[in-house]
Amino acid sequence: MSAATATGAKPVKPKKQPTYMKDGRPRSVASIVVMIVLALLWTIPTLGLLVTSFRPREDAATSGWWSAILNPFGAGWTLENYGGVLQGQDMAAGLLNSIVVAVPATILPIMFAAFAAYAFTFLEFPGRDTLFVVIVAVMVVPIQVAFQPMLDLLGPNGIGISGQFVAVWLLHTGFGMPLCLYTLRNYMSTLPTSVVESAKIDGASHYQTFWRLVAPMSMPAIAAFATLQFLWVWNDLLIAKLFLNPSNTTIIVQLQQLLGTQGQGEELVQAGAFISIIIPVLVFFALQRFFVRGLTSGAVKG
């Protein structure tokens, strides 16, 4: 915020002649004002969560979170809510479960999809276009179609892994596969084919070409997909709710259950929400560079 307001403070004085930015473009006061307003609008709800999560129960139940901001020294602050949800609501376990679910489920689809994307990009074979059309089509299919058949298949009447982490890894791997394949294939098709051809002339097998050349070169797209898939898996409610035992359940499901509990203090709910949000936000900002590049260059075709 400070940077945006700093740029916004200067150009207010001169009205007629526009000032210029470092790169020589005229400074647009209107744009600065609009963006500050939008940034505020987009941030205020989250700010409410952050503030409420640090307020004592009495205060949160009787006054708005903004009153604590307007009078920060008169208001009470506490860390108790975090202790309350982590231990009392067992969210520490949920947090661990979320990590145990999300990390493998992010990584597992990549290897399978990468080999398939390599075949789609660099190999000629009958049925190639038809098979890729299947991928494009399947990306649109709602995952709800899978619930009942997969509950039968993975449940006690099937192979009996429903409720365990493995079931959720498997499902997220399957559901993430079409998008992963699509993203990697689009990115790989921007790589120079001459590299692959020269490797072939040197006598490298496709397996070697994939490992030594194509996989390392595709890292930006892999990172972009991994970010997306991590967010998706971490933030998923349905699959975790249906396919995990209560003891294995993720923090998102716990938060949903906390929300459904009548008379639960808002300050506890908000503290729980903050804990569930902070890891994906950190991952997102850490990998944002890859993510934006992956999205804008080839990962999704414009």
Partner: peptide
Amino acid sequence: RLSTQGEKVAKSFIFLPMAISFVGAATIW
């Protein structure tokens, strides 16, 4: 139309919610 730095900062505020789950967003709202 903002400066490079201003653009980066302003955009971060807009796309922060992208990382938030639907359940988390519902809690916030």
